[in-house]
Computed example of a mutant assay.
Amino acid sequence: MKPYKVLIVEDHPFQHEYLLKLFRNDGGFEVDSAWSGSSALNLLQRYEYDLMVSDLFMPEMDGVQLFQKITSLKKRPAIALMSVASRRLLVSAGLSAKNLGLKVVGLISKPVVPNAVIQLRSRLDALASQAQEYATISLSLERNTLLQAMSNGQIQAWFQPKKSLRTGKICSAEALVRWCHPTLGVLPPSDFLGAIAQFNLEDALVGLMLEQSLKAQALWRSEGFDVPVSVNIPTHLLDSNDLADRLYQKVLDAGAEPQSICFELMESSTTEKISNFYAGACRLRMMGFGLAQDDFGKGYSSYFNLVSTPFSELKIDRSLVHGCLERESLALALESIVDLSHKLGLIVTAEGVETQEELEFLRRIECDLAQGFIICAAIRAGDFIELLLEDSPKPALT
């Protein structure tokens, strides 16, 4: 296999030579090095690298400034950050890089150990495999293609269960969009939601997801299960003053109750006017819908909005859940958020739960609900019935 081209940026003489030796001894890398951020930037402008490993603390141009500048490059390497500083500082720097669109494959505390280099190579292998997989996918993301997929049933609502951390029972579900493509198989939302937004089809998608959720509820109800469903709304859609009315009418036309639907305001956008945010949120609640702040801790959400908006539910973003067992600061933040939410009368749901240990921690801090792959991925409405049947009380023996 062709070795990865890596650029090491380190100003300390001993660390510089030590890192060169580590990467060269591994055998999976072709290594260049730079002593400063400016010299690294010069090399990045002239050559293409698969990976840049940079110290955070350097004179003239530190590591954070360096990756801010490389966002302008056409070919940007994956990033690994090194430091003797606190883990919290490393994580913060990594989040800064990720939010600039860079691929962060490592946050490494010094001194760097050989196993950290092996892990970097494994993550680069995963990125290369992913890139090769995506290269084989050819989607024609035109407006008419998306509209046709929405009208012919290819774009569907699948459902991920939310389980109570007290009883272990399924108590609701979230509708998540999937594209069942005739030749490419089931595509995740990351493959097409950008185009949905680009062609101003988000409003139509929300309507479709609501309609399919109402049909799923009717199906489940015919089997004896009454399951509330959450539907995502990009927050900027609240700029449409009649959004609440249109959603309410869809529910009435289906013969359903607004109380069975919760709308989750997504963190991917905000309204043009803050008044539209509060007006839209109030009107949805006045019509009887549940209202959740989605992805709390990730984007535009704030404690002021939390205490000022008539939410019925708070959904904690998975970025706060992952690592909560290793990082005391995350654990304390989660406990504080759960406590405040309960004082405000909100149901608290943790998203993206992946391990039994995370479930146990969330149970200890009295989080109400959890969803994530450890419980179940999103599945079709018909398959969801099987989960409900497994979850329901077994008949008594006679």
Rank of each mutant, 00 (worst) to 15 (best):
M1R: 04
P3T: 07
Y4T: 11
Y4V: 12
V6W: 00
I8F: 00
V9D: 11
E10Y: 10
F14I: 14
Q15S: 13
L19W: 03
L19M: 10
E30T: 02
V31F: 05
S33D: 10
W35F: 06
G37K: 02
N42P: 07
V53R: 02
D55L: 09
F57I: 03
M61C: 04
Q68F: 03
A80P: 15
L81H: 05
L81F: 00
S83D: 09
R88F: 10
L89I: 14
L100F: 11
G101M: 08
L102I: 05
S109A: 15
K110P: 05
V113P: 04
A126D: 00
A126E: 00
A128R: 08
E133Y: 04
Y134I: 02
S138H: 14
E142Y: 02
L146Y: 00
N152M: 06
I155S: 01
Q156V: 15
F159W: 01
L165S: 04
I170D: 05
I170T: 10
S172V: 05
L187K: 01
P188L: 13
P189M: 09
G194Q: 01
I196H: 07
E202R: 14
L208V: 06
S213K: 05
K215F: 00
K215C: 02
E223S: 13
V227M: 14
L237M: 12
L238P: 02
N241R: 10
L243N: 07
D245F: 09
R246A: 09
L247A: 07
L247Y: 12
K250A: 15
V251M: 10
G255L: 05
E257M: 12
I261F: 05
I261E: 10
C262Y: 01
E264R: 12
E264P: 10
E264N: 08
L265T: 09
M266G: 09
E267V: 11
T270G: 09
S275G: 06
F277D: 02
A281Q: 11
A281D: 06
R283E: 15
R285C: 08
M287T: 05
G288Q: 05
F289C: 12
D294W: 02
K298T: 14
G299T: 08
Y300W: 13
S301T: 11
Y303M: 14
F304Y: 14
F304M: 11
T309V: 02
L314D: 04
I316T: 10
E335N: 14
K343I: 00
I347G: 01
E351G: 03
G352N: 07
T355H: 06
L359R: 15
E360W: 02
E360T: 15
R364G: 15
R364Q: 15
D368T: 08
L369F: 11
G372A: 04
I375S: 07
A378K: 06
D383N: 12
D383A: 13
F384C: 11
S392E: 04
P393V: 15
P393Q: 08
